[in-house]
Amino acid sequence: MALLEVNDIHTYYGNIHALKGVSFEVDAGEIIALIGSNGAGKTTTLRTISGLMAPREGSVSYDGEEISRTRADLLVSKGISMVPEGRGVFAKLTIEENLDMGAYVRRGGDLKDDLKDAYALFPRLEERRKQFAGTLSGGEQQMLAIARALMSKPRLLLLDEPSMGLAPVLVDGVFETVQRIASEGVTILLVEQNAHMALQIADRGYVLQSGEIAISDTAANLQQNETVQKTYLGID
């Protein structure tokens, strides 16, 4: 049984029909890439899974449980964690406070080891742990957003455009980190415009087009697929 099963979901922004029956599944331990152009519905898909939006039709099941109408804050304790688009760090909280908020659902738990793990993953954050997150550079904010999402000990990590707005040098680092997180047993659903990088680390991928899944295949096959090459990889 798949860890996450998205079944024919229709999500609307007011009257705008953003997702027109999207279905896919994510098995435990996989890295899944969801690629597509601007406005294809990638972010909406993640927002629907994470509980920020409710689909009008269809179902989302996680670990065998129907979650499409469960509030976002309750899903975090079930093991779904999301790094939102644009990172969304709390600029007026310090780095350590941001990490504390990531662990909000684990009340009473001992965070010392987890903070240590987070700082081991991103030593830069430890040097600045008492600084306001707003003072960090874009790349550092992305590190913080990922580290924060891991503080809740998720089984499924949703990443929305982690490479957006980062210098090319940093992009490589982000994807390496994602791979490292996956190697520790966290299942990853990655939304990216940078299809090239996403497909390099993913096991399988889905191509989203105008609110529908257009192509689904293994990442290796997608990289060879002519349509994908033309439209998303810029290869003629």
């Binding site: 939102p84 007026k92 909280l93 908020m101 809740s152």
Partner: peptide, 15 residues
């Protein structure tokens, strides 16, 4: 403070 800064991200933290 987190909610005052960004309600949506606060919800994603489980708040």
């Amino acid at each position: 403070r987190a909610v005052s800064e960004n309600k949506e991200v606060a919800r994603l933290m489980g708040i």
